[in-house]
């Protein structure tokens, strides 16, 4: 097993310690995991350890146990839950390399900043005024990492997961959910001109107090609004697929993509001058 782990990386022992520490503090209020010596915690641990063996370059990352817990609880079979979890990992940002500048978290945050700028300009202007640390949008990190799992009660969170997994028109529906939450609950941030730290405090206090149905409805509306725009900035060109076909919203023309002149990379913009 030791060979599975990279030289210089964490030792097998430390991976196991990390997993053990997190398993005992994941979803313990759920009846499926509650109580001392609950055998389902051992199953959760087995799955996470097996995943770390299968994907040694990823190993175990904090947050994985949060994503696994509802899967195991729903499927109630170790082998099936393992493969289901492994499949889910493929579409999370856990599998992207976090040490490079081009990691998935940065990409998600870049898209989200652009979406906010486009769809909620007042909110974006206020956050930008709070400084570059505020623009890291730390209040959404947990939303994105755990796909809102800690923001809604479990049955609602699973509802949100399925809406995101449907990949309808976009593989980034979760970002529309983020914008929806800000649109519905974030107006006070602008009205009261909250500073950076209080923005963080404000959004973290919303956890478990939001209405998932309202949020999803709003997110779907925002996606519709986005897809109907006549032109979108080049920074958001990769966000949605605009292919025509038998889809419900294919009656409108393709949006024009316009160079916004403010993207981070130094490659020439393919949309410049269009």
């Amino acid at each position: 097993m030791k060979d599975c782990l990279r030289a210089g990386g964490p030792t097998w022992q430390s991976v196991e310690n990390t997993v053990t520490k997190d398993v005992v503090r994941t979803d313990r209020k759920n009846p499926f995991y509650e109580g001392d010596d609950n055998p389902n915690m051992d199953i959760m641990k087995n799955i996470l350890m097996n995943y770390a063996v299968m994907c040694p370059a990823i190993g175990y990352i904090q947050g994985m146990s949060d994503l696994l817990a509802p899967i195991l609880c729903t499927i109630q079979n170790e082998a099936d839950a393992f493969w289901c979890f492994a499949g889910l990992m493929q579409r999370t940002i856990f599998v992207s390399s976090p040490r490079t500048t081009n990691n998935m978290m940065d990409k998600n945050l870049e898209y989200l900043r652009e979406l906010l700028k486009l769809l909620l300009p007042d909110f974006f202007r206020h956050v930008a005024k709070c400084g570059s640390d505020a623009l890291q949008l730390m209040f959404v990190h947990r939303w994105i990492l755990l796909c809102f799992k800690r923001e809604f009660p479990e049955s609602s969170a699973l509802h949100v997961w399925e809406a995101c997994w449907a990949d309808y028109r976009t593989a980034y529906f979760h970002l529309f959910v983020c914008v929806a939450i800000v649109a519905i609950y974030g107006q006070d941030v602008v009205v009261q001109q909250l500073p950076h730290d209080e923005i963080l405090l404000y959004f973290s206090s919303l956890a478990m107090h939001m209405d998932a149905d309202v949020v999803l409805k709003k997110a779907r509306g925002l996606l519709y609004q986005f897809c109907r725009l006549e032109k979108i900035p080049c920074t958001l060109a990769g966000l949605c697929q605009f292919q025509t076909g038998s889809e419900q919203w294919d009656s409108h023309i393709q949006p024009m993509i316009e160079c916004s002149q403010v993207h981070g990379d130094n490659d020439p913009c393919p949309f410049a001058g269009k």
Partner: peptide, 17 residues
């Protein structure tokens, strides 16, 4: 002492097009 920074933050660069 409210601290203000220019809108847009420090990370945005002009693109080369």
């Amino acid at each position: 002492l409210p601290r203000t920074t220019p809108a847009g933050g420090g990370d945005a660069k002009q693109c080369n097009c």
